[in-house]
Design a protein around this nucleic acid. Structure first.
Length: 891
DNA sequence: TCTCTGCGAAGAGGA
């Protein structure tokens, strides 16, 4: 049986005499899953003792109370009337199984735990071995799928064009080198033993809930893992860490019931001309047998990582017997150790960062790692939640019926399936997701890209799968990039900027020009001047409708005119593209847009940087661009990390975590942040230090470095009044009399046909209807009627929007009307002539979504001419803030 | 059960 629970107590290791001789053991007490946390120790079933035998005492040594422990194939026995458990010959002991360790991380940990840590912290920079390695891996996959070698090389090298160009490589030389590597693969494939195509699988995605491991095997050959290495190894055996990697995949396969006892390492730099020193072998392939002992070793190493991550500790390198003098990362290791004052086997160089910077690092490191755990939680849901729960959570599309497959170019597959219901999900066209036969973890699953998501679903994948279900596949990328951003800011960041970030120096400004940039709006004009004059940082506070995007475009133009290279960034693709649209409207289009094909709006595609092609051309396009536009997530990408700018301008800065903002501003000497901390804050999964944006912190710290845009062009006076008073100290005002006085009649609507209670630009309709979960069907009915009323009065349905706090209510209302219905969060940044807000609550106002009043500020400031609040008056009146809102709406 | 956008998904190397 598998035994799992939370560790309560860990005993010391000791030795006992058994019939097999002296053996070591350690006892661990756990509270098994399913036993109530409050259960008393005296309660017989509350705790269970598990004896970990032999080498598993190593894992006991890492264990701490509070950690989760899993013992597979545990043996049950009675000892003095008490039921106890112990490890058996078949057992594995897994610490914190929910912490999913990547196979490549186990590999680097085995090399040196410090290398694991450094890779995580600083990310792997753009370098040739990695780029080439990726290309060779792709060509390998193509060959397995039966593709022509030259076609594959041409295409795969072209795909890496931008990266190769930035590294200064020429396509022809790379093709030659890849061809030499591929020759080793081809030669091996041609040895004749591998004729049955069915025995091969390429790029196999594996997740192991039991062992807490995830990864992608390069290939499976007759069920055995094959790892490709683009280096050279002339010795008889595979390198130890390479074996570990293959063995980790074998472990996951074992969980799936298909144990692998042999692993193959393919060293493609071993040419058939070079004879193996010891064995005389000519083959680049090295096989090794995978025994239980090796698998157990992998699990113990994996446990070391999980244990270290559990308490956020930092490895020193002494855990391993790797020799620092041979390590490529030695210098980096010593610098990081020195700056962060970490103990390290390699030693330290340089003096430690000031204490407040190290505190900041520790705080953010912890917060980011908490986010990582939340991401792992998302993986866990893949197998913990039932299919129906996942579908209800919008994380899966179920009930697909396979409707054909077709082999496409490159030996890949286009898979079709038909939807049997109209359930919604987070999945969008262009997303990477997990397509499966219905069981995403234990069954056949492939990572795929969604091409079409209508009644028919079309995906492309490396291998064919009968698509019955699609699941969101979580990614750690954003978490990893946050961490590297913090690393870059502290360890590579300019001292001058750090002084500003850490409150040691006020941002400085140089009077560069006294010219007027915008002549009909003083605060916008001030904002542009502030940004142009900033030597360090400028902050532009833009409440709803104040012409933020226009101002941003004007700032960028002014900066470029002064000879600056500008990075234009924002949290979302939509905001980036909006800023670009404004720039182009102002006649400026020397812009390169960095981003995925899917993320970039259709009309901005022509600005998008081509990442595939002739290396020199790709690199020149990027390097020569005076303005580069990308989301902050993209700013953390390997390519953009290589770029430098004079100024970084970040929109939606109030929605960004500090690390998210750092990712962009790290690339530049100076920065301009634009945002509104009275609107939505960053969305983070865990409650931690990431909840407050850098924008908000700096606006409060340096009021003199900020300008608030105070004229709004969106709402009538009546609509803006509450927001202005509650959130902007009354400083927000209509830009013109026309804006202030606008009414539906301006659209040619005869307002007299509207019922009396809708005559005022702000109206309240008491729904007096009960909340059901996160919906309020009665309120939804009322909203639909109101929409009809406006449409009947002549309002264009496109001019009407409905906002609700919960997605469930959004769905409820969407079923009743065709106008745009969305959550507050998704409505941020846009507006409509008429907005109806559904509050859902009844009884008492509670729940986190109502506590953050900034969300309400967003909801109430989307309407231009008419705003209708629909809710339960009694419930709203129970809270002072909402009571004030009611008073305003009912005036 | 609160809200949710991004991101290549992984990729290398030597005494």
């Amino acid at each position: 049986m598998n035994l799992r629970g939370r560790i309560v107590e860990v005993g010391d290791e000791r030795e006992v005499e058994t019939q097999y001789g002296t053996r070591s053991l350690a006892e661990v007490s756990i509270r098994p899953d399913g036993v109530d946390d409050d259960a008393d120790a005296a309660d017989g079933d509350a705790y269970v003792r598990v004896t970990l035998w032999g080498k598993w005492t190593h894992t006991a040594d890492l264990a701490e109370p509070g950690m989760d422990l899993l013992v597979t194939d545990a043996e049950e026995s009675e000892y003095r009337g008490e039921k106890t458990y112990s490890t058996s010959k078949e057992s594995y002991v897994v610490l914190e199984p929910d912490f999913l360790v990547d196979v490549t991380d186990v590999r680097s940990w085995v090399q040196c735990p410090r290398m694991y840590y450094l890779n995580k912290l600083s990310g792997i920079p753009l370098n040739y071995p990695v780029v080439k390695g990726t290309v060779v891996h792709e060509v390998f996959g193509d060959l397995l799928r039966g593709r022509d070698l030259d076609d594959s090389i041409d295409e795969r090298v072209a795909e890496a064009g931008l990266q190769l160009g930035l590294l200064g490589y020429d396509a022809a030389e790379v093709r030659d080198e890849v061809r030499r590597n591929a020759a080793a693969i081809e030669g091996w494939l041609a040895q004749g033993t591998l004729t049955e195509e069915d025995a091969w699988r390429s790029e196999y995605t594996l997740i192991s809930p039991t062992f807490g491991i995830k990864g992608r095997a390069d290939a499976l050959r007759r069920g055995m893992p094959v790892e490709l290495k683009t280096g050279k190894n002339l010795r008889r055996d595979p390198r130890f860490q390479d074996k570990i990697q293959a063995a980790a995949y074998a472990l996951v396969l074992a969980e799936r019931g298909v144990p692998a006892d042999t692993g193959t390492l393919l060293y493609t730099k071993n040419t058939t001309l070079e004879r193996n020193e010891e064995s005389g072998d000519l083959s680049p392939a090295k096989e090794f047998s995978i025994g239980k002992g090796l698998l157990e070793f992998v699990v113990r190493k994996r446990n070391e990582i999980a244990a270290m991550e559990f308490d956020f500790s930092v490895p020193t390198g002494f855990e391993a017997d790797a020799k620092c003098e041979y390590c490529f990362e030695k210098d980096t290791c010593m610098v990081v150790s020195g700056r962060l004052n970490q103990e390290s086997k390699a030693g330290q160089i340089g003096s430690p960062l000031p204490e407040d910077e190290r505190d900041y690092f520790d705080r953010l490191y912890r917060a980011i790692e908490e986010e990582r755990r939340e991401t792992h939680e998302e993986y866990r849901k893949l197998w913990e939640q039932s299919a129906e729960e996942r579908a209800a959570d919008d994380r899966a599309i179920l009930g697909l019926e396979p409707a054909g497959r077709r082999e496409i170019e490159g030996g890949r597959w286009e898979l079709r399936a038909t939807k049997t219901d109209d359930a919604v999900s987070k999945l969008r066209e262009g997303d990477i997701c997990l397509a499966s036969d219905g069981d995403p973890v234990g069954g056949h699953a492939e990572l795929c890209r969604i091409r079409e998501l209508g009644d028919e679903v079309v995906v492309t994948a490396d291998e064919p799968v009968s698509v019955r279900r699609l699941d969101v596949y979580p990614s750690e990328i954003s978490v990893s990039r946050m961490l590297t951003a913090v690393h870059d800011a502290l360890l590579k960041g300019d001292e001058r900027r750090k002084d500003v970030l850490f409150g040691r120096r006020e941002p400085a400004f140089t009077d560069r020009s006294s010219r007027t940039y915008i002549d009909n709006n003083d605060s916008q004009d001030d904002a542009v001047r502030l940004a142009v004059d900033a030597d360090d940082a400028a902050l532009v506070h833009g409440p709803p409708g104040t012409g933020k995007t226009y101002t941003i475009a004007r700032i960028v133009r002014a900066l470029v005119a002064d000879g600056n290279r500008v990075l234009l960034s924002a949290f979302t693709n939509r905001a980036v593209d909006n800023a670009l649209e404004a720039l182009r409207d102002q006649g400026f289009d020397s812009i390169v847009r960095v981003g995925t094909e899917n993320g970039v709006r259709e009309d901005m595609q022509e600005l998008r940087l081509e990442t595939a092609g002739e290396p020199n051309d790709c690199a020149a396009e990027l390097n020569g661009a005076p303005v580069v536009a990308a989301t902050t997530a993209s700013c953390g990408s390997r390519v953009v990390r290589e770029q430098s700018f004079d100024v970084a301008l970040v929109d939606e800065a109030s929605q960004l975590t500090e690390p998210g903002t750092l990712a962009a501003i790290n690339r530049a000497d100076r920065f301009v942040l634009v945002g509104d901390h009275e609107q939505l804050p960053p969305v983070v999964r865990a409650e931690n230090d990431l909840q407050r944006s850098l924008f908000e912190r700096l606006v409060e710290e340096y009021p003199d470095a900020s300008v608030m845009l105070d004229r709004q062009y969106r709402m009538s006076q009546r609509i803006q009044a509450f927001s202005s008073a509650e959130f902007y100290d009354g400083a927000l005002r209509p830009a013109t009399g026309e804006v202030a006085a606008q009414r539906l009649s301006d659209l040619g609507i005869d307002e007299s046909v509207l019922p009396d209670d809708l005559h005022d630009p702000v109206a309240f309709v008491d729904s007096d209807s009960p909340r059901v979960g996160n919906t309020n069907p009665g309120e939804a009915d009322r909203i639909a009627e109101l929409v009809e009323t406006y449409v009947a009065a002549g309002v264009d349905p496109d001019d009407i929007g409905v906002i609700a706090p919960f997605r469930a209510q959004v769905a409820e209302i969407s079923r009743r009307t065709d106008v745009t219905v969305d959550t507050v969060d998704r409505f941020q940044g846009s507006s409509k002539e008429v907005i109806l807000v559904s509050f859902v609550v009844s009884g008492r106002i509670d729940g986190p979504i109502f506590e953050d009043h900034r969300r309400i500020n967003v909801a109430l400031t989307r309407a231009k001419k008419s705003l209708v609040l629909v809710g339960d008056a009694d419930a709203l009146a129970s809270d002072p803030f909402y009571a004030r809102m009611l008073e305003w709406a009912r005036r």
